[in-house]
Simulated scan of single mutants.
Amino acid sequence: MSFSLYRSVPNLITLGRLMLVPAIIAMIAAERWQAACVVFILAGISDAVDGWIAKTFDLRTELGAYLDPLADKALIDSIFVSLAIVGVLPATIAILVVARDVMIVGAFMVSWFLHKPMAVKPLLISKLNTLVQLGCAAMVLGVKAFDFPAGVWFDISIYAVAFLTLASTGAYFEQWIRHMSV
């Protein structure tokens, strides 16, 4: 294997995760819950694996710095919207999750257009937010796939997603305001 191909392994894994998104959406739309749950878990594992490989073997790239969060956003936003459309999650939580990502991407674009680009560097609150969002989505898919009772954990996870999504939005907005000298 050539060094350049070896160097691309984390990005290729990320691209694979991105390609799983339409499949998961189709499975949710068709209410093929077990398949959607399994593929979603594989996508989540691929996120951990590509990050571990990039860090462990010093294979981080500029492309990967943009591609990995893009794949995360595509996966999370698509899952939340799909689950809201089929009536499994409240639409308000899907709107909140998507609005946060649109605002963050919009802020990065504005800073870039104004020739004051920001470095792509996730905040700790954002990493926690992503983890809780993925956990909530996995729980919901698992509940649907294996007929587990959701119980109080459903409400707790929804409130945790809402709180962390708002907190993360605020943290990025505050960082962007400082960066842009507003």
Rank of each mutant, 00 (worst) to 15 (best):
S78G: 15
R100G: 07
A160D: 05
H179A: 11
I79S: 14
N11Y: 09
A74I: 06
M118D: 03
S78N: 09
G151I: 06
W112R: 14
L59M: 15
L12S: 12
S181H: 15
L114E: 15
W176K: 00
K73Q: 09
N129P: 04
P10E: 04
L12P: 00
A43C: 14
A54M: 10
I125Y: 02
V97H: 11
T56P: 06
L164N: 06
T169C: 11
R17I: 06
A160K: 05
A119F: 01
Y172K: 08
R32A: 13
V88R: 13
A160C: 13
F163D: 00
M1A: 13
E174T: 10
M19W: 10
A23P: 00
G151W: 10
L20C: 13
L89D: 07
L123E: 14
A36I: 10
I125M: 11
L134R: 06
M118A: 13
V110D: 00
G135I: 12
V132D: 08
R100S: 07
I28R: 02
V88L: 08
S157Q: 03
V102S: 00
D68K: 07
K121E: 14
H179R: 05
A150L: 07
M109G: 03
A23K: 03
I95Y: 14
G16N: 09
F148L: 15
A23N: 03
I53D: 03
L164Q: 05
R32C: 02
E62Y: 01
L89A: 09
D77C: 15
L141A: 11
N129I: 01
S2P: 13
L75S: 08
L59C: 05
N129M: 12
N129W: 02
A65Y: 02
V143H: 04
G106M: 00
A107D: 00
N129Q: 12
G44E: 10
V105N: 00
I156S: 05
R32M: 11
G135M: 09
P117F: 08
Y159N: 12
G87C: 10
A26V: 04
A84W: 07
V102H: 00
A162Y: 10
L164P: 10
V182K: 09
K116R: 15
I45P: 05
I85A: 07
L89E: 07
A30V: 01
A94L: 09
L134W: 05
V38K: 05
W33M: 10
A71K: 08
C37K: 01
K121P: 01
T14K: 13
M139C: 08
V21E: 02
V88C: 03
S181I: 12
S181E: 15
A35L: 14
D50E: 06
I53K: 05
V49I: 15
D50P: 13
I158Q: 12
A43R: 07
L123I: 03
V143E: 09
I41E: 05
L123D: 04
L75P: 02
M1I: 09
M139T: 14
V102M: 05
S46G: 13
M103Q: 06
W112L: 13
T61K: 02
I76A: 14
P69N: 02
L15Q: 02
V182N: 02
I177L: 13
G142A: 08
A94M: 09
T130K: 11
F163G: 06
P149Q: 13
L5K: 12
